[in-house]
Design a protein around this nucleic acid. Structure first.
Lengths: 342, 342
DNA sequence: TTTCTTTGTGCAAACGTTTGCATAAAAAAT
DNA sequence: ATTTTTTATGCAAACGTTTGCACAAAGAAA
């Protein structure tokens, strides 16, 4: 029962008194093989418990049938969900996915790309780390001719296909909604990082204010890491600064959650005294009290589209493709945390 | 600048008028190579923009330096976190990780294992799918001599190392806590699946009742898929059944959340009328209102330990190792949802 | 000086596939 | 019956490493 030694197509060939070439062709459904032989090969393969060696095939073909996916962290719902979306498509096309986490470390990102190139993945799908400002490692990927597609955390500095959501518009709509609810002093939690998504959200915020005749107050824009703790600190800063705003729009749900905690601890009514909105539709947002208004980023869809874009480009092999930018329109999810008017 | 054609160690060798063997040895820090040559090789490699081909090395060595990780789903915090724990250790040892999701489908699990075997991973770490009751695909892994370690969703039917938490004791402690809070009619949400974790949690529940002189009432044990919807349905069933219990202990946080929603919708006070406890310490549990009592599964630690166990076994190569079962003692996290006595 | 070690490198085979080219046998066309 | 086409298979090289064995050169020991 226990496989003595690894079975190869040679073993199958010997057993049937044919050659490895024939076995290979039979297994790969090459039409030049007679039905009879094919059947025999399949049968022998099963009997001998043959397990194909993709490594050997990959070496010969120059294709590993593996694609590398780089994310800052896989234990954040958004990324996990995008990854799932990517995997769905990839698996359908018989590709496997190596998932690598950078933990937002630039060095790890560089190393990861190197490792993936050495692993001879057939292409890379990535979301750029927060701290990445130099893109030469990504250029290396392009130089080696591998397809590269970015999602969510994208950049203008690379001429590649990318998929993102319209952060600007989502942000604009959230702020507009807050204004319609009667808010006039709206604070914004943002990140100091040079990622376009945060810049875009900030832009949507300022534009919405401006278009509605509300003066921009830079004291209401607070930078932090946008994690729970960052949100708490930002909120504390607002308390220290004196008069509270009547709404807070955080560029991340965790930031909003931090604010919610501090507000509750200090007995400030949400949304009556301060309305609250986040960004990302993390699963917990529907479970908070009050439930948190936020933006759904269509993560699964984003994964699907990213993968589709990737494989499209993949088919074209050579440089004949033009990088494509897909922008999804995210969905505003309005919940109690921002509904001042009942 | 653009890499004309793939650079190999042959190219480096030619450039330096030495052979590929020497280059290979130099790159692998083989002590039989002179410092001089090594330096020259390293320099030339950098100059030529050499990228090692792990596939070729893997073929030759019979080691891919990749391990397969199988989880039901990667977008559940618990699994994502375990995976991260695994990756931390693996990366440190220069291994990459292929993450595969089975979506709790038995067929997908079988296919995945086959794919990983073909990909010639150096070993597999897995958490068994909910619907898996036949383990021959895992036996295939063992037969092929690859190290296999299971975590969380384990089974007695395989003689392999496994890491889990003491579900029994955690469950026992939660129920004990509820009893101390004065609860006497405690319902339990469980799963019909044959996974040991749910059986263990049920056992902890019944034992705790018994040890405290509370009669077991089978009508208070409700089976569902333990997702949010399952929790809601189970709760509805309790309502239909007549008198409400004074506490509910769900074997999953989502199930507890479903119950919480229905209870709130029906205006039942938590915890005053019905106390509530879940299992897993999903991130949202600290954000609910009231915050949910639950069990922390030490997911990151579990990932670390699982990986360590794996590599330990890995080092031993042959069959000389004895499967090891590690049981972590999870932490009970008591929050407001179960505190009847203020 | 001769013999024995040590050091650094080369040779060639191997890992398990895939595939272009060649070819024998069978079938079809003449 | 001969030529042409089709069909099914074999041969051998290639993918890019690694490594056991051999061996020349240099140094140490005799």
């Amino acid at each position: 029962m226990a496989t003595k030694t690894k079975i190869t197509i040679q073993d199958i060939a010997e057993k049937l008194n044919i050659t490895a070439s024939t076995v290979s062709r039979a297994l790969n459904n090459n039409p030049r093989i007679s039905e009879e032989t094919r059947k025999a090969v399949l049968k022998a393969a099963k009997q001998l418990n043959y397990q194909p060696n993709n490594i050997a095939a990959a070496l010969r073909n120059g294709k590993s049938h593996i694609i590398g996916v780089i994310v800052p962290t896989a234990d954040r719902t958004f990324f996990a969900s995008v990854v799932r979306g990517i995997e769905e498509i990839a698996n359908k096309l018989n590709y496997k996915v190596i998932i690598c986490q950078t933990y937002d470390s630039y060095e790890k990102e560089v190393q990861t790309i190197d490792a993936l190139l050495s692993a001879r993945v057939d292409g890379i799908i990535a979301s750029i780390g927060k701290n990445t400002e130099n893109f030469s490692h990504y250029k290396k990927v392009l130089a080696s001719g591998l397809p590269l597609v970015l999602f969510d955390r994208t950049t203008d500095q690379l001429d590649v296909s990318q998929v993102g959501i319209n952060d600007y518009l989502a942000s604009y709509k959230i702020v507009e909604h807050l204004i319609k609810e009667g808010c006039t002093r709206i604070a914004h939690f943002t990140s100091p990082k040079k990622i376009s998504i945060f810049r875009e959200r900030l832009r949507g915020y300022t534009d919405a204010l401006q278009d509605n005749g509300i003066p921009f107050d830079e004291n209401l824009v607070i930078s932090s890491n946008l994690q729970l703790e960052g949100g708490r600190q930002s909120m504390e800063k607002l308390f220290e600064a004196g008069e509270l705003p009547d709404a807070i729009f955080s560029a991340s749900d965790y930031g909003a959650m931090g604010a919610m905690q501090v507000l509750k601890e200090r007995g400030v009514a949400i949304p009556d005294r301060v309305a609250l909105a986040g960004f990302s539709n993390e699963p917990f947002t529907s479970f908070t009290d009050p439930p948190l208004t936020t933006v759904d980023q269509l993560s699964l869809t984003m994964g699907n589209i990213t993968a589709e874009l990737f494989f499209e480009q993949f088919k074209l092999k050579d440089k004949k493709f033009v990088p494509q930018r897909t922008v999804l329109m995210p969905e505003i999810i309005i919940r109690k945390s921002s509904l001042k008017k009942g």
